[in-house]
Design a protein around this nucleic acid. Structure first.
Lengths: 126, 126, 126, 126
DNA sequence: GTGGTCTAGACCACC
DNA sequence: GTGGTCTAGACCACA
């Protein structure tokens, strides 16, 4: 997996995990890959994965069973969507709209790109 | 001026300068406030303003005349918009569309919020 | 390490790093000394080394891995030689030729001095 | 006249004056353009020209007659060539030779470029 | 441990 | 007056 420069890796990993959960790849209530396995598959330091897990645990999205591993919460998908919705509406959206205004990007163009994006990335639903 | 925590101050200053240029407050080819003056008005250390200037100079948005000061480039507005457009289309937009998909936010809702935003922030044009 | 007065220290450090890379002392793709260690060994402030690193990073000669350190780019030697060649041909050489003309220095004399220089500085190759 | 970034303007002006003298454009013992005239023609601040004059005066290349202006010394061309020769041999040449070695530029190529340069810049002598 | 940022303050060359 | 560089020292997030 490749990481962006501008955001810390552990947060990008946390986002990745959330995405997998929301997309149904990691069912609620089930055990997650171990820290070292995930670290190996992502090619990062285990400490970094650990931090992502701890971060998600504080949010209640995953929880730890001592000596066994981490498990996704039963309501993990709902929790994640709620957090993300909040972040989107309160911080990302205002910046987006401002940028669209400054760059003079129309809603029509956005709509067109949205259709393209869906067709490419999630062809199943489309 | 107040600064956010999540981004470094000097980059926020650079963004601020770009915004002033794009909005036509600082005309192309004109002299910018001196490092010291801008630092005083923003209440930061001159070194921090200096970093912002250096950053913008490497982008070709402003340039230095020895012993006199910094000047906005003649094509500064176009340059800034080009940079921002590239960043938007290549990194911000994909994230946005993905989030919209995950959160199941419709284009109609986005349109509604855009109209609201324009009415509030830039009532003149609206 | 000793520094000249006429050029800023951080640029001299950048030059020094480039020289080490070109001469094969610091292999491409390998980790560089940490900012603090290099600063200590050169007896300068860490900030000064940091500036040199930032400068080289913008040139693509070195790159950063978060929390780990700086690494020389795989194509660093080629990049450096390309930059240097360009600078030499476009700015240094014209001045040199002009000076030689004004001073009435012949190519023969230059050749003689070149042979002497090689014999002294790089006796292995010679 | 256009100036390079890396060297101070007043020194570039001093070099320009020296060049004119050596090339015979400004005869020894004659009066030089006034500070303000030269400043106007070079499009720089008169103070900057003043500094160049003062610098050349300390070298004995030009001298001031109060209330009249600056005059080139009778032995100006010889003085200039002596200074320039020293600078060339002691500082410029070693760097040049090192660069040539690193860039693997042969004397033959240098000779070729020298011939080209002479033909272009000083066709009279050629 | 790593880099990154910021401040405070000094000193410099230059226009 | 202008920018430019350097130091010292602090604090932070990150791996």
């Amino acid at each position: 997996m490749e990481f962006k420069d501008k955001q810390s890796i552990y947060l990008q990993i946390a986002d990745y995990i959330c995405e997998q959960i929301v997309l149904g790849q990691w069912p609620p209530g089930e055990r997650i890959l171990s820290v070292r396995d995930l670290a190996a598959s992502l090619e990062v330091n285990p400490n970094t994965v650990m931090r992502a897990f701890e971060f998600l645990q504080t949010k209640g999205i995953i929880m730890n069973k001592r000596g066994i591993g981490y498990f996704t919460a039963e309501n993990a998908p709902e929790l994640i969507l709620a957090f993300r919705r909040e972040r989107f509406l309160e911080t990302e959206l205002p910046e987006l709209l401002k940028t669209m205004y400054l760059l003079n990007i129309s809603m029509e163009e956005l709509q067109k790109r949205y259709n393209l994006f869906i067709a490419e990335e999630f062809p199943v639903k489309a």
